[in-house]
């Protein structure tokens, strides 16, 4: 089994994504713009996980005000690394 995959930073306008295997799908989102964007961010994350067909995964996102493109990029990088680590 792979270790935790971590991508991104905790600098302003960035976010950090961690992925690790899990028996169920767990998503944890911690964001500085909770009130304004939490539900939106959750939708973005779920869509990408769906497209990647990842179900048994624990995802933790710590967001410092990242825009959608950054959240998508960090998550896609993490997924690619996760898949590489778990298939090879």
């Amino acid at each position: 089994m792979a270790d935790i995959i971590t991508v991104g930073t905790l600098e302003s306008s960035d976010c950090m994504v961690s992925l690790k295997p899990s028996k169920t799908l767990e998503i944890k989102i911690d964001t500085i713009v909770h009130e304004a964007f939490y539900h939106h961010i959750k939708t973005v994350v779920e869509k990408i996980l769906n497209e990647a067909e990842l179900k048994n995964i624990h995802l933790s996102l710590t967001d410092k005000g990242a825009l959608d493109y950054t959240i998508k990029a960090r998550l896609k990088t993490a997924i690619e690394r996760f898949k590489e680590a778990n298939n090879g």
Partner: peptide, 9 residues
């Protein structure tokens, strides 16, 4: 265009 539309407070 950058942020998307925030949920009203």
């Amino acid at each position: 265009q950058f942020t998307g539309i925030p949920k009203p407070t």
